[in-house]
Design a binder for these strands. Structure first.
Lengths: 367, 367
DNA sequence: AACTGCTAATAATGCGCATCATCAGATTGA
DNA sequence: TCAATCTGATGATGCGCATTATTAGCAGTT
């Protein structure tokens, strides 16, 4: 027979107090000037210890409290494998942080997936309610949903920088701009001048930032920017050869493995003839694949930092906290909008430019 | 300002009915002979569509209903990486199933980890309550906790075969016995006779089953069983050479990569001199590692099947269902205790035995 | 003795939902 | 015509907790 769970009332009975008293003891602070004597407190705590009482998160949540549950919403479908490889590391970081925070994680796998992309509809939306707050992961476009998030004052944190509206959206992003700038600088230091950018156009933040970084770094070096944006690997390789690039920076979603193969098939060795720097980790790591040079996005750390931030937001937003401090949020701009450094990766796909190259023809007029 | 969520009461008001009616419409069946006319039903459904109402899982759960949330409890700490590599595929399968079931997943990351192993204490226990049921993953030893599970009649499913007590515990396991038997048979078919078993002793089910499979297969072939159980890779390699094995079956936690290296360092090529069959996937896949022959554990499928089973258990155990059918569980033995086939893997570490080997000296007396 | 001012606690309420017991009205039976 | 039956719904209750409003007890004042 289903033995009933132990409730605050049980504890209260054992301690000879009322249920409310137990609740007060558990929540430490006393909202409206209620005071509990030290003696009673101890009696209650003992009863809790003896009975092994633990709060029912559902009830806590329903009564407006915190359930110590944080949600994770992934916009992209977690399947197929491809995106899994990409999102996995974030989850690892998130999970790690959750362990340390003593919090459970709710994965919103129930939301309907349309066109390989999960929607946060009104439906899905309400389900978030069980969690105290929520992490948002992946590209996201629906303004309406965002507005709803803000309206309801539900705590959330984006993983990935948010450009537009960024001011109002807490996020933990990666410094794609800086990382890309450094890659260009590395190549220049190796003597390269004809440095191309390989990557599809897109309005997603990482792409914007990479292009931005490439542009400004090239400009700072007085070099001409040249973009290759073909969605066909073979054509891209051909273009690289045609343009006589001695080096390229490549966004990782552009099948770098296949691209390098294609280049070598055309007689250009990587890195001897063409250096290739990757602007992030390869999306589909291949067994026995190349050891790419470039930078890496600290995905695990991003996940962890995001969860820590969310946790802080949650406690700040809780009614209790608001009552105590009188302000809604005590978080600084630097905490709300974090940009993590993308460390350089020393792989085997970067080499000095061939000497004797006609390097000068690529300088823009310094005037 | 936090716009209030839409509740059943809101829907009821719009449809001009009572909250209870809404609840009845939503839950389809009518517990105690309550009937709703088709017309009213439609009116309520329309109101739901218009308002975008979705149930609050916390409230549902508190009121004794189902929240469409299934829990996942991992006994082993999900960190460090090592175990992550191992448990990852299960989670992938689980997530996939969750998507298809339209269910959210609650990861119990809050339970305290002691000695790298998570405990399901009384505390952790109560937290399970938010979920309608729970998946249990990993080695598990605490009888007390198990008993509690059974006592409270909380729906759960183990991932991994349960030997002792298996009769009362629903699980989805892998056929390690059969897989191992087939590996021995493969080796015999390739002409091998001196076939060793490499693996540490242990009381965990996979180990027991592998040993079991090896024993019975060898016996069936009339061959002598020989075990190598050293926790040192070098010593193991030495033993393999000393014993003049022409083939070994190896449990994957025994660092097969290093073992093979060590063998080749001693002049024994894999598979030319020694065939090595892996009894499961390598636990720490190495970049550019060997392409192992052996069998693979269908981890993703196990995860998915386990979640489906749990889902069925949950609906069977629900009060509603019990009322309707009069019996507690309609599940058959075959559904409750699933053993999935471990498909053979054709890798590159198995080869025919060298001809001219003194194969006969290994036959046990057929009398 | 009546009043104020405290401290320490309790009773009562509501969160959103499932469910049981109840009820109003329509239909049927005799 | 009045009870018996059936149909279609509603009111009330409780799940376990947080929180507000209220009260009991007591010391110190006037």
């Amino acid at each position: 027979m289903p033995r009933r769970r132990i409730t605050q009332t049980d504890v209260a009975a054992m301690a000879g107090v009322s249920q409310a008293t137990v609740s007060f003891v558990l929540n430490g602070s006393t909202p409206s000037g209620v005071r509990i004597s030290e003696e009673t407190r101890q009696r209650v705590l003992d009863a809790i210890r003896i009975t092994g009482y633990t709060a029912n998160p559902a009830a806590q949540r329903l009564a407006g409290g915190l359930a110590q549950i944080l949600g994770v919403f992934t916009y992209e479908a977690t399947f197929p494998r491809a995106s899994r490889d990409f999102y996995g590391p974030f989850l690892v970081g998130i999970e790690h942080a959750a362990e340390r925070l003593g919090v459970d994680l709710l994965l919103f796998t129930s939301a309907p997936v349309t066109d390989g992309r999960r929607r946060l509809t009104r439906d899905g939306w309400q389900r978030l309610g069980v969690a105290d707050g929520c992490l948002l992961l992946g590209q996201h476009e629906h303004r309406g949903e965002l507005q709803h998030l803000l309206d309801t004052n539900y705590p959330f944190v984006f993983i990935g920088k948010r450009g537009s509206d960024g001011g109002r959206l807490p996020y933990v992003g990666a410094d794609y701009v800086g990382g890309t700038v450094r890659q260009v600088e590395r190549l220049v230091a190796l003597g390269h001048r004809r440095i191309g950018y390989v990557g599809m156009r897109g309005t997603d933040q990482p792409t914007l930032d990479r292009v931005d970084g490439y542009r400004s770094a090239m400009k700072a070096q007085g070099l001409t920017t040249r973009f290759v944006e073909l969605d066909d690997v073979a054509a891209t390789a051909a273009e690289i050869v045609d343009q006589r690039f001695t080096a390229v920076v490549v966004a990782p979603e552009n099948h770098p493995e296949e691209l390098a193969d294609e280049l070598e098939r055309r007689g250009k060795q990587v890195p001897d003839d063409v250096s290739v720097l990757l602007l992030g980790q390869p999306h589909h790591p291949r067994r026995g694949g190349r050891n790419w040079s470039g930078f890496s996005v600290p995905r695990e750390e991003m996940g962890a930092r995001a969860l820590y931030l969310l946790s802080r937001l949650v406690s700040d937003d809780s009614p209790k906290r608001e009552r105590e401090t009188g302000r809604t949020s005590a978080l600084t701009e630097a905490e709300l909008h974090q940009i993590l450094v993308c460390p350089d990766v020393e792989g085997g796909t970067a080499a000095p430019a061939r000497t004797g190259e006609p390097a000068t023809d690529d300088r823009t007029d310094p005037a």
